[in-house]
Structure formats: C-alpha cells, structure tokens
Amino acid sequence: MSVVNKARLLSYIERVERLEEEKKAIADDIKDVKAEAKSAGFDVKMITKMIALRRLTPAERRLEKELTEIYEAACGLLDGTPLGDAARERLMKEEPNAEPAPEPPAHAEEVMRTVEEAREEGGEAFRAGVRIIDNPYTAGDPRRAAWDEGFCAASGSDGMDIPAAWRRKAKKPAKGDRRDDDGGVSAEAPASASDVDPDQEGLPFDDPQERGAEDKSDEGGDDWPLPPPGEPASDAPWKDPYAPSAAQPEGDAAERLDDLVKRTRRKQAETAATKEAAKRGPKSATKRGAKAPAKPRKSNAEGQP
C-alpha cells in the first residue's frame, strides 16, 4: 500500500472512530434524559414506546394498533375484553362490501397530557369540588404545578380560600370583635407577616366564584372524571402492562380467531341492517345505529365483573 493510500485509510478509520465516539456520547445523553424522566416519575418504558409511535405516520400507527389487537386476540391476551374499534374495522375490511373505515381516533397523541391540558384539568377539578391537595400529578412534574395553577385560577384564590359553605352568607355589619374591658384581646388584627401585605382585601386574585354548598359536600371527588391514581382509564387505548393479567381463556388460538372473525362479521351485518333501516327512518336512528358496535366494548371495559 502506498504512503498516500495509507494516510487516506487512516483518515477514514479516524473519522469512523470519531463518529463512534459521538454516537456513544449521544447514547449516554439519551440515557441521562431517560434517567431524568424516570426520577420525575415517568415510566421510561412508556416513553420509549411513545417515541416509537411518534416515528410512525398516523396510518402506520393505526396499522400497528390493529395488528397488535388482532394478534393479541389470537394469543388470548385480550383478557376477555372485546376487540377494539380499529381491529374490528380491519377485520371487516376484508369483507368485499365493507364500507371504508372512518379516521382513527388519535389516541396515541392523547396519552401524554400536556402541561396546558393539566392546567385545564385543574380548573375542572375545582368545579367538580375536588380538594386542591388531590392533584393527580407527581411532585416535580411541571403538570402538577399547572394543575394547581389551573385550580387556583378557576377558584380565583390561592387554593386556601374558605369554602362558600363555611362563610357568612351576607357580610356582617362592622360590629367588630368583642374586646376585653381592659383592651387585652384584639384578635382582629390580621397576621402581620414581615413580607406580607396585611390588608384583608389584598389578595391578587379575581373575585372568588361562589362555590355552591353542594360542591363541598362531595369533596371525595367521586364524580371526578379521571381515574383514581394507579388505575388505568377505562377507555385506555391499550391495557396497562403492569396490571395483573387475568386468567387466559382456554382453547386453541386459531379457533378463537376464527370465532372472532365470525362474530365480528355478524355484528357488521347487523350494523349494516340497522343502517339500512335508519336510512329510511328518522335521523336520530342513524346516529345510534352507526355507533352501536362501539358500545359493548365500552360498557364491558367499564363494568368488568
């Protein structure tokens, strides 16, 4: 090998080596970011999954979801829940006369709530009578702050406002506190904090919205639309991988898949019939008919025995 070639070869080698080093550095950086996310309370496995999903186009994502569900069904991994809409639609598509499926719901993008969404949730929580300390986000998560701020903004207070149910209905006439004859007690003076404006009206908030007495009575927040922490939402786009898996149904996977396809087709025929009827009937029926196949899934997922 000539001297010139040797130099060139070395330069290639060195360039690759440098790039390898950079690759390692970047890999380390990624690891750090993941570690940071983990310590902020996020699930790194899910983050990785989200990154993979974001790499796909919406169509690819949909395909992935459909196939996952169909394969899960075949392997008996659906734990007794019916197929999701996407998978069912895919199975139907194989029928020549099946109508084109509607656009897929953008579940994957909804999974991670943004800071702004958390802020809105906080406002909603206030209106639903949730306690401010029942913030669903973990300490340090920027969404925890946003939720709290949203709550405060909706309540027009600092979150420690005396609930309307415990306040005087009408402003008491300026009767003042009963003072001791010797002037000993004067509890009326507000706290004179060193760096605090002692003015009673001095809080920088809008007028607190009157919060109905009934808001306060269900403070446990039973009607709070979010799932309690630790539980997956009932209409979760996929199942909680950490949930204890239910017993797998018995039987041959291929048979089950067949059965599934048959049942799905039957459902589809029913739907088509309803639609046909609806075309002739009043408009409201169309709507209900079209939605019918989605119903059993939802009610089943929510009211699991």
């Binding site: 999974v111 709530r113 986000y137 997956p232």
Partner: peptide, 12 residues
C-alpha cells in the same frame, strides 16, 4: 392506561 406518570407513581 391513559397517563403513565399517574399509573406508576414513584414511591414518595
């Protein structure tokens, strides 16, 4: 699961 951070809270 709708929200990973919610379902896997770190043990405070």
């Amino acid at each position: 699961m709708s929200e990973p951070a919610r379902t896997r809270k770190p043990d405070i």
